[in-house]
Design a protein around this nucleic acid. Structure first.
Lengths: 343, 343
DNA sequence: CTGTTAGCGCATTCAC
DNA sequence: GTGAATGCGCTAACAG
C-alpha cells in the first residue's frame, strides 16, 4: 500500500511556520494561545483530517486506554453478555476494549496475556480456562503493574479480585425445586468437575438432596468431560443404559440439557410428565425450546458491569493494595414448561 | 498502583555497563556481537523478564501487528465462528486480533473504526451494521492507508474487498426443496429488507416460486423489523391472524424460526406434518431443537479464514490496487426433521 | 504568547 | 564488536 503517512503535528507546524508545540497547544485548548494561530491550526487540522497518533501518546503517558478481556469462548450467551456489560462500562469511562478468546486452551491463555502485557493494556479482565491450574502468567501481569480481575470462573487458591456467580446456590435452588415438585429420582449430568463452577453445581445438587432427606443415588450422576450438547447426548445415553428409575434431570447447563432432551424423547419419555428437566444459563434459545426449558438465570450483564467497575476503580485508586474484592452474584431459578409438579 | 516501570533495554544496558544498542543487538541475534556480552544480556533479560515495548516498536515501524474486526454482534453462532476463522488465520501470521462489536449501531461503528485508526491497526475486517448506508468512515480508513475487507454483509454500491455468502442461493435451495416436497403454500418471515442479505433471502424465496411455477401469495410474507426469536413470534402471530392456507415456513434465520415454531405449536399445528419449517444459519442449537431444525448451513469458518487471508495478502503486496477481490461462498441446505415430504 | 529542549523505548544508521 | 547519534509523534518543562 502506498506510503500513506498520516499528517502529523509537525506537518501542520511546518506549513504554518510555527513550532510543533504551538500546534499541540492549539489542538488542546491551551489557555495561552492566540485566537489567530489557533484558528489556523484547527483549519489545517480539519483540512488534513489530522488524527493524533495514539501510539506516541501511549508511549508518552504510559497508558494506552485499552482494557483487555480474555474469555474461554465468545459463542455462548453467557460470555457474550458479560462482554456487553463490560463494554458499556469501560467505554463510558473512555476506554477501549480488546476482546480475546482462549478457546479453553491454557497455552492460548498464556499467549494472550503475554500479548496484552506487551501491548501495555491498562488492565485485564479474565475468565480462565478450566485447565488453568497455575497462575504465573497472572502474577507476571500484576508485577508489570497491570491490574487483573477474575470473573465467573474461580481459581480457589489464587488471590485476586474476583466477581463470581453463586453456582452452588443456583444448583441448589433448581434441585430443591425439583424435589418439592415431587421428583425424588433426579439425575445430574455434571460438567468436568475439575472446574470449580461445575463442582459447585454438583455440590448444590448433592446438598439439596441431603437437606431434604432424599437419598443420593450415585448411579444417577454422570460426569462429562465437556459441556456442549454432544456431551449431553452421550451422558443421557449412559443414564438410559444404566436402566435406573429416574423422573428428573438437572443438567450442568442448557446446552447439555437440550442434548439430553433429544435422547429422552428418542427413548419415548415425555417432558415434563415423565422427566422434568432443568438446565443452567438461560441461553437465548431456552425459552423457545420445546418445551420451554426451565433453567437458572444468572445476572450476566451485571457481572460484566461489576467486573469492569472494579477494574476501573483500580485506576482511580492508584493502589494495587493487598485487599482484594470478592463479589458473589446470586442467580435465579426460571421455571418453564420442561418441568412440572408430579402430583 | 505502584510505579512499576517495566525493565527496559536501557536498564539492562546500564547494569552491564554497555550501550543500549548493544543490548538491542544481543536480543536480536545480531551477527556481530560477542558470545560473552550476548550471554550476559540474555541472562539479565531473563532475570528481569524483559518485555520489549510494543508501543515503541509500533511507533518506530509504523505497524502494530494488530488487525481489527468489527461485527454487529458476537452472540450469534455465525459471527462467533467467523471470528474463530479469522483468529486462526491471523494469529498463524503473527498478528493479534482486536475484536469489537457495533451492536448494530451506526454511531458505534463509526466510533470503533475511528478508534482503530487512532490505534493504527494494520488492517480491518468489518461486517457493517444494517443501518450503514454511508461509507465515509470506510474511506477515511483507506485514505489513512489501512486496508479494509468487508465480509458477510454487502454494501451494494461501495467498492471494496468483499467476502460474502450467497444468501440468495441458500434461500432458493431451501424454498425449492420445500416446493419439491409438495409444499405450495410457503410462508416467509423476512428480516429487515433494507438489509441486502435479507433482501436476497426474500428474492431467493420469490424466484424459487417463479421458476417452479408456483404463484406467489403476498399474504404469506411477513416483513419483520428485526431478526431475533421475538420477531419470529410476532410474525407468525400475524400470519395466523391472516388465516390463510399455509403448509410451510421459510424463516429468515434460525432464531426467527424457533420463535415462530412456538406459535405454530401453540396453535395446534404439527411440525413437520402440517407445517414444514426451514431456517437459516444452522445455529448450534438447531440440530438439538425439537424437532431438529432444517436449515441452511453457511461456510462460516471458511468465511473468516478467507476474509483474513485477503487482508493479509494486502500486507504482502503492499499495493492498495484498484482491483477489489469479490468472493462468494456457497451455503448448503441441511435437511432435518422439521420438514418432511407431503406425499 | 511561542519556540526550544528533552524524553517516552527502541532499532538503525554511522562511526570507531 | 561496540558506542553515539538519530528519529518514530507527541507533550511538558523551561525559556524567552
Amino acid at each position: 500500500m502506498q506510503k500513506n503517512r498520516q499528517t502529523t503535528i509537525i506537518d501542520i507546524a511546518k506549513q504554518l511556520g510555527v513550532s510543533p508545540s504551538t500546534v499541540s497547544r492549539a489542538l488542546h485548548n491551551h489557555p495561552s494561545i492566540s485566537a489567530e494561530t489557533k484558528k489556523n491550526v484547527l483549519a489545517l487540522a480539519e483540512k488534513y483530517s489530522y488524527q493524533p497518533n495514539l501510539l506516541a501518546l501511549s508511549l508518552l503517558n504510559k497508558r494506552t486506554g485499552i482494557i483487555g478481556i480474555v474469555v474461554p469462548e465468545i459463542t455462548s450467551y453467557f460470555f457474550a453478555t458479560v462482554i456487553s456489560g463490560v463494554q458499556d462500562m469501560v467505554s463510558s469511562a473512555g476506554y477501549k476494549l480488546l476482546i480475546c478468546q482462549s478457546n479453553e486452551s491454557f497455552e492460548e491463555e498464556k499467549k494472550l496475556l503475554q500479548d496484552m502485557a506487551l501491548l501495555r493494556v491498562d488492565g485485564v479482565l479474565i475468565s480462565p480456562t478450566f485447565r488453568t491450574k497455575t497462575f504465573d502468567h497472572f502474577d507476571r501481569l500484576k508485577s508489570a503493574g497491570i491490574p487483573l480481575v477474575i470473573f465467573d470462573r474461580d481459581c480457589p487458591h489464587y488471590k485476586a479480585d474476583k466477581v463470581l456467580v453463586d453456582s452452588y446456590d443456583g444448583a441448589y435452588q433448581a434441585v430443591e425445586y425439583l424435589i418439592k415438585t415431587g421428583r425424588h429420582n433426579i439425575a445430574h449430568i455434571a460438567g468436568p468437575i475439575a472446574f470449580p463452577t461445575f463442582k459447585q453445581r454438583l455440590d448444590g445438587y448433592l446438598n439439596a438432596h441431603y437437606d431434604n432427606n432424599i437419598p443420593i443415588r450415585s448411579e444417577l450422576i454422570v460426569y462429562s468431560d465437556g459441556f456442549s450438547s454432544d456431551y449431553g447426548v452421550d451422558a443421557f445415553v449412559q443414564l438410559i443404559a444404566r436402566n435406573k428409575k429416574l423422573d428428573a434431570l438437572f443438567a450442568v447447563n442448557d446446552a447439555v440439557a437440550i442434548g439430553a432432551m433429544r435422547v429422552i424423547r428418542e427413548n419415548g419419555y415425555r417432558i415434563p410428565e415423565d422427566i422434568s428437566v432443568v438446565g443452567f444459563d438461560d441461553e437465548s434459545y431456552a425459552q423457545y425450546y420445546f418445551p420451554p426449558l426451565s433453567t437458572v438465570w444468572q445476572p450476566v450483564y451485571e457481572l460484566g458491569m461489576l467486573s469492569a467497575k472494579i477494574l476501573l476503580d483500580h485506576f482511580a485508586s492508584k493502589e494495587l493494595g493487598e485487599r482484594f474484592r470478592y463479589e458473589i452474584l446470586k442467580p435465579e431459578l426460571v421455571i418453564r414448561e420442561s418441568s412440572i409438579s408430579l402430583s
